[in-house]
Structure formats: C-alpha cells, structure tokens
Amino acid sequence: MRIIGPDYLVFGVDDLEGSKTYLTDFGLKPVQLDETGWLFETLDGTGVIIRPKSDPKLPAPLETKNMLRQQVYGVEDMAALDAIEAEMSKDRRVTRLADGAIEFKDDLGFELRFQVTIRRPLSMPAEKINAPGAPAQRAPNELGVTDDMPALPRSLSHVVLFVPDMDKMVSFFCDRLGFVITDVLTGAGPFLRPAANDDHHTLFFIRTPAYMMGCEHLAFHMGGPTELMVAGDRFVRKGYQSFWGPGRHKFGSNWFWYFNSPLGVHFEYDADMDKHDDTWVAREAPNGPEASQMFLLQWREKWAPGGGPEGGSGKP
C-alpha cells in the first residue's frame, strides 16, 4: 500500500471566523474552496480544511464533540488506490468518487478518504548550521537569522488520535493498510509510518475512554529548529496560548511546540524528525515526562542583561 501520509484534515468548527484567523496567523495560506469551505495550506499544498459544523458538505461528526470530520490521505498513484479499495471492499462499504478518490470508515468509525496525493514537490534548503570540525553549511556573509526571516509550515506532518480501542486501530492500520510501528510509548500508544514515507511517524494513537475519541493534535513540519522557535515566538506574541514546548521529543527526535486552538485540538510546529526504513527495530519506553522529551523549555519575554546593578532591559 503506497500511502504517503495525510494530505488534509477536515474539521467542522463552531467558530469559523476565529478558526480562519487562527490558521492564518499559524502560517497557513487561506484558499476558499466554495461558499462555505476553506483550505489552509502549507507550502507543499497539504493542510487543513474547515467548514461550519452544520455544513452538509461535511462527513458525519463523531459521537464525541471532537471537531475532526475526515482524514484525507495521499497515496502515490491510482494503483495504490485500487489496492486499498480491493482490500477495504472485503468487509465494508467503499465509495469511489468522481475524482477517483475513495472514502470509507476505519474500524472505530473515523472517516477516511484516500486520493492520489495533491502535495507539490518542495525544493528548499533545510536550516543550515555551522560547527567546528564540519564543513560550513552557510557561506561567508550568509546570515543565520534576520528579523524578517520566513518561518512557514512546509508540510502537514502527522496526526494524533484519541482511540478507545488500540488493538483494533493498530491491526487496521498495520495489517490492512501497511503502516509500520516505529516506536511504542507504553501506556499511550504506538508511532506509525505508512509504507511510502520515511518520516518516524505520520500517525500516533493515545488510548482513551470512548467519550474522548477524536483528534488530539496535528503537526506541521518546519524548516528547522530556528524556524520552529521563530514561528512559535511570533504566534505567542499575537496572543495565542502555548500548551507544551518548545522542546525536543525523544522518539522521532523532532522539535515540538504545541498550541491550543479554536478547533479544539492542538496545533504543533515540528522540525527535524528522524527518518527510518524497514531495517529499524521499534523501541519501547513507558510513557511519561522522561520518555516524552529530551528537554522542555518555556517561552518568556525578550530580556537582556544590562551594564549596572539596575541592569537589564526587562524584568530578570
């Protein structure tokens, strides 16, 4: 199953204008789809689709109040769609749409759509660093940071779901759709990557009671840790609420910074995630603060030490 990863996540929201402002300030580009729908896209075209929660164009809501309505996955080609359709048609209704995409529900009732991916190839440098002993990555006179440096989400990275039945979800995604478990946080759940993506994870499950079923967060790849910090700092300064971070995860090695959102899920900036192939052997660690991160920092106002005993340009 040549699945690449999430192209879009679709939400039915109760505060459309607030959500539009939030997604724009997060760094996504608004594209109006029709009278009631907006796509907010990253640089490679992946992103988030929002509609008012009463919009009949939306798939049915979950039984919980979670606003996630559909996960749209991108695959390599039509042959991949045909293979998924053949597999899924064994035990459930699969709808083939006019554009060739297919829709069905997973074993817990999450709405899924698979399509030939819409993502555009990106050609941009990663964050460049200089260090003694290694060739300089930035040329002489090439600056590492500037006040106006861009820090925009490049691609939709991964989705995290609250799931009431872990075994069903793992067997569905691994046995039926060809996802691979890269690591496991015992007590929370497994990290999964699809066959046509070498990112450490595009999907993570957290075991919860049924009344919590839904999306916990979605994450966006940035160009590096500096872009992540710059984007997060600008976001905080606009009045948005940090939830966790900045920091760096252990499993996946990705930098992270999570924010609350009017979509009732967390939005995460991530950067510099590990890549894996099929020779990788999954690790396992008990879920908790130690396993969750290498380090954890917290945003504060800019400050600088000054000259005298009264020094400093802000509070210490």
């Binding site: 459309l16 609250f162 924010f259 959102s261 009017p262």
Partner: peptide, 19 residues
Amino acid sequence: WRRDAYLNGEGTHIACHAH
C-alpha cells in the same frame, strides 16, 4: 486559544481549547 478566548464558538460554555 487566544488571550481571553475562553468560551466555545456559540458562547454557551467555557471551553478548554486543548482538547
């Protein structure tokens, strides 16, 4: 989710915009 944004969209409840 933003400074002072504590209510849900309809304004009927206090909402936690984490989950």
